[in-house]
């Protein structure tokens, strides 16, 4: 199964990497509310990073700032690369509620590949590989908007996969889907990571974080309180809020 996946990872050496990503003192105010404050970290290629925190901790906002959908009020976001077209083209994001186009499944993937200027034979090959990996091949000519929630989320992953990003951001990708679809989605996320793509995922689900994470960023009320390897975080969290969160005693 991994054969189609291995080919889909970025080709090393084809272009300079855009990673690591540095955030320095990032803060975000909206309508006078301080939603993120003094967030600094580095995302290196490799480990699967889970941004963990309660609802309202600022996880999604942080992800959107990384992905360039929001500009921080304070601080800096710096990629290794300075070429903005390259930075945009080599990252992808899967939203909590993916927005799919009113077209067929195939056309939804084709759309993003056309935007990236991928040639037609290459597009067809990548679409087939993405559909196969996400198990959507039999639904390829169906309208994307008439699929079930789980299938729509798989299509969003297929669309991200087809782009062959160097880094993919997933915003609570399993928040709206059933347990079976969640298990499958987690296996897809692991394959994404195994294929060499940097995966950054937000979650408030401790089980999911412990199943997936190599590295945990713990966010609480807009502040990054802990960044640690997953094993260390779950065994010996240093921050008192993190300990409370792990015990299920931390309100959002």
């Amino acid at each position: 199964m991994l054969d189609s996946g291995a080919g889909a990872a970025l080709q090393p050496g084809s272009e300079a990497s855009i990673l690591p990503l540095h955030l320095t003192g990032v803060g975000l105010d909206i309508a006078g509310h301080r939603l993120l404050d003094g967030v600094s970290f580095e995302l290196k290629p490799g480990p699967l990073t889970v941004i963990l925190g309660a609802n309202g901790a600022g996880k999604s906002l942080l992800l959107k700032i990384c992905h360039g959908l929001l500009s921080p009020t304070r601080g800096e976001v710096n990629w290794q690369s300075t070429a903005s077209a390259q930075i945009r083209g080599r990252q992808a994001m899967v939203f909590q509620r993916p927005v799919l186009l009113r077209r067929s499944v195939v056309a939804n993937i084709d759309y993003v590949l056309r935007l990236q200027g991928v040639s037609k034979p290459e597009r067809q090959q990548r679409i087939a590989a993405s559909l196969q990996m996400t198990g959507l091949t039999h639904l390829q000519h169906r309208g994307a908007r008439v699929l079930s929630g789980g299938e729509q989320q798989k299509l969003a992953v297929a669309r991200a996969w087809a782009v062959r990003p160097e880094i993919v951001f997933l915003d609570e990708p399993t928040a709206n889907i059933d347990p079976a679809a969640t298990v499958f989605m987690e296996s897809l996320i692991k394959r994404f990571s195994a294929a060499g793509t940097k995966v950054v995922l937000t979650s408030h689900d401790l089980g999911q974080a412990s199943r997936l994470a190599d590295e945990v960023l713990f966010l609480h009320q807009g502040q990054l309180l802990e960044q640690a390897p997953a094993q260390q975080f779950f065994a010996r969290p240093e921050n008192p809020h993190a300990r409370a969160f792990l015990r299920g005693e931390l309100p959002g």
Binding site: K64, L69, M93, F95, L115
Partner: peptide, 19 residues
């Protein structure tokens, strides 16, 4: 509904308009 998603996919404004 679409703005963030289309921007994320790399669509410029003119493409956004057509889409």
């Amino acid at each position: 509904e679409y703005r963030e998603q289309l921007y994320s996919l790399g669509a410029k404004r003119w493409t956004m308009l057509q889409t």
